[in-house]
Design a protein around this nucleic acid. Structure first.
Lengths: 340, 340
DNA sequence: CTAGGTCCTGTGAACGTTCATATCATGCGC
DNA sequence: GCGCATGATATGAACGTTCACAGGACCTAG
C-alpha cells in the first residue's frame, strides 16, 4: 500500500492565515497589481513564510497550461554518439527555465513509435508544446504534429509544406566560411572527408563546402566514410591524391582523431604540414593535440529562438511564418596552418 | 490573449459513448480485472478509437501521484564537460520510462540555490521523487531532502548520517582491477595522472590505484593536474621519472588526448611502448588512435537501480537501508600493451 | 448627502479525474 | 423461495486551483 504522503500547504491555508480570500492569495501570485500594497506585502510574506507554492497539477487542470515542454530524446547511435545532445539540452533547460518552462524528457516505450509517444503527450495533456530534434526530411512526427495543430518546434528543418517552426544552424554558410578561412590562410588545395549517412545536416555541409570551393576557386577531392573503421584508410588515401591537399575539412568532429592518426601515418603533422577543421565543437575537440579548428554551434541562441517560437505557438496559436537560420561560429585553434 | 485550446476527450465522453459510467471507464484503465470481459473489451475499444488518455493533471491532482522524477541537471564546467551526462540521462529516461515515469529537468533560476529549486519542486508537487547526481560530500541538497523526508536518490554517495539512497560505481575497485589488468599484462612500473579537483569520485579512484599498487607490489609515481593546460608538461615530467613507467593510468578519459600527445613528444608510441588507461568510457575514447583502454560505467544498471530505489521510497515511504556499489567494466582496447 | 465611478476583495463554479461508497444483478446453499 | 455473499457498475464528493462575476469600500463631484 502506498504511503499516504501528507498534502502540503494549500491556498486556503494561506488565505485563512492572512485573513483574506483564496482569490486574493491567487492574485498575489498571478496578478500582484490587483492588490493594495499593504495586502500584497502581508500575503507574500505569509506565502514565503509558509512555503506555499501553487499545486502544479491543480493549476494546470484549471488553467489548461502546464508550463512544460516535452522533448523526445533521439535514440543515440553508439557508433556516432550525439555528444551534442548534452550541450543542447543544457541550453534548452536554461532557456526554457528563464521563460518559466521546464523540459520533460519523453521516450517511446519499447515497440512504440515516436509519433505514438507524441500522441500520448498531447492526449494526456502532459505538455504545452513539443520540441523535436534530429528530424529527417520526411519525419512522420512532423506530419503528425502538423495535422493535430499542436504547438511544436524543431531543431533542424521541416520541409516546405509543413509549419516552418524550426531553428537550425546555417551549416552550408558555415562551411563556406570555413573554406574562406582556409583561403585566407593561404590554402589552395583542400580535401573534404564526409560521413555518408543520409542526414540532411551532413548534406548541407557538403553542399556548403562545394559552393565555397567554387567561390574561392580552390581545388580538391571529396571522400566519404561509412563507419569508424574506414576513417584511417580513406583519409590516408585522400591525403595521397594529387594535388596533395594542405588542408582537410571534416564534416563532423568525430572524424578528427582518426584523421589526426592518418595524417601522422602519412608523415604529416597536423597544425604544421596539414590543417584540419571539424564541425560541431564537441567538448573533446579542445583536448586534441593540436586542438581542433571547428564550427561552434550557437546552442544558447538556438535554444532561445526555439523557446520563443514555442511560446509564440502556444500563446498565439499560430506557428512562425518562416524558419530561422543561425550562423555557426568558426573557432580557430591550433590545427589551422598558414601556407606561404 | 492566449488562444483557447480546445480541451480533448474526457472520461465522461467515453463513458457516454460506451453507455457506462465514468468509474467503469476509469477501471478499464486502472483496474481492468474489475470489469466483465465483454464490458472491458467494448470500453477499451472505444478508448482506443476516441484516442482518450486520462488528463495527467487531473489524475495527479486527485491521486497525488505525478509519475514524474525531477532531475536537477548539474552545471557543466566548460573546462571539464560532463560528457557522461548525456549517456546517464539516456539511461535514466529509458529506465524510468519502463516503470511508467518520466524525467523532468529542473534547473535553479539564476541566483537561486539548487536546494531552493528543489524546495519549489516539492512544494509545487511537481514530481514524486528527486534524482541528484554529482553530489559533494556535504551537499546541502541532500541535507535538505533528508529533512523534508521527500523521496530521492543519488548517483554518487551520501555521507553516513544521511539516507543511504544512493547508487555509485565502485571506482576504487575498478582502479584496483585496472592495476591488476596491467599487472597481468606484465607491467611493473605504473604511473598515475590525476585531476586535483576535490571531487569524491576522483579521490576514490586515487585510493583504488594506491591499494592496487600495494596489493600487486608495483612501483610508480603520481602526479596531478589542475587544468587542461598542464596536462602536457606534467605528463612528460611523469614519463621521465625513474623508474620510467611502462603504463600510465589516468583518473579520467579527458586526460587521454593530452597524455597521448605527451607520450609522442617523449618518443613513445601509445599501444606499443606505453600503455594508457582511462576512466568513464566517454564516447570519444573509441575514436582515439589507439583506442583507449578504460572503465565503462554500467549506466543502464545504475539507472535501473536508481529507479527501483526511487520507487521504493515513493511507494513504501522508506529510503533504502544501504547504498549500492556497482562494478565498472574494464574495456580492453588498443592502448594496452604487453610487457615481456 | 447621494450618485457614480474606481479599486479591491470575496464567492460559487468548474477543470477531469479517482476515492469511497452505494446500488444493482447474479448465483448459491438451505 | 429466501437470505446472503459476491462481483459489476454507478453516484457523489473531493483534490487545489483559477475564472467569472458579485459585492463592498472609498473617493469625488454635484
Amino acid at each position: 500500500m502506498p504511503a499516504q504522503r501528507p498534502r502540503g500547504v494549500s491556498i486556503q491555508d494561506v488565505a485563512r492565515a492572512a485573513g483574506v480570500s483564496r482569490q486574493t492569495v491567487s492574485n498575489a501570485i498571478n496578478a500582484p497589481h490587483k492588490l493594495r500594497a499593504d495586502t500584497l506585502e502581508r500575503v507574500t510574506a505569509l506565502i514565503e513564510e509558509m512555503g506555499y507554492r501553487p499545486d502544479q497539477s491543480a493549476r494546470s487542470l484549471r488553467s489548461g497550461t502546464r508550463r512544460v515542454i516535452a522533448y523526445t530524446t533521439p535514440e543515440t547511435d553508439p557508433d556516432n554518439p550525439n555528444a551534442l545532445m548534452s550541450g543542447f539540452l543544457e541550453a534548452m533547460v536554461a532557456a526554457a527555465g528563464e521563460a518559466g518552462y521546464r523540459i520533460l524528457l519523453v521516450r517511446p516505450r519499447p515497440g512504440q513509435s515516436k509519433a505514438r509517444a507524441l500522441e500520448d503527450v498531447i492526449a494526456a495533456r502532459t505538455a504545452d508544446a513539443i520540441l523535436l530534434s534530429d528530424v529527417l526530411e520526411d519525419d512522420p512526427c512532423v506530419d503528425y504534429l502538423h495535422e493535430t495543430g499542436f504547438p511544436f518546434a524543431v531543431f533542424g528543418r521541416t520541409r516546405p509544406g509543413m509549419p516552418q517552426a524550426w531553428v537550425d544552424v546555417d551549416s552550408a554558410q558555415a562551411m563556406i566560411d570555413m573554406v574562406g578561412l582556409l583561403t585566407s590562410h593561404g590554402h589552395r588545395r583542400v580535401a573534404y572527408l564526409g560521413t555518408s549517412a543520409a542526414l540532411p545536416w551532413l548534406r548541407h555541409r557538403e553542399a556548403g563546402f562545394r559552393i565555397g570551393m567554387r567561390r574561392f576557386g580552390l581545388v580538391g577531392h571529396e571522400a566519404f566514410v561509412d563507419g569508424l573503421d574506414e576513417v584511417m584508410a580513406v583519409t590516408r588515401d585522400l591525403l595521397n591524391r594529387s594535388p596533395r591537399p594542405t588542408a582537410l575539412v571534416l564534416d563532423d568532429d568525430w572524424l578528427a582523431p582518426g584523421a589526426y592518426a592518418a595524417a601522422q601515418a602519412e608523415g604529416l603533422t597536423v597544425g604544421v604540414d596539414l590543417a584540419v577543421t571539424g564541425f560541431n565543437d564537441m567538448p573533446y575537440t579542445r583536448l586534441l593535440q593540436p586542438a581542433l579548428t571547428t564550427v561552434r554551434l550557437p546552442l544558447r541562441r538556438i535554444a532561445d529562438a526555439l523557446v520563443s517560437r514555442l511560446l509564440q505557438s502556444v500563446e498565439e496559436g499560430t506557428p512562425p511564418e518562416a524558419g530561422l537560420l543561425l550562423a555557426g561560429d568558426p573557432v580557430l585553434r591550433a590545427s589551422m596552418t598558414t601556407v606561404a
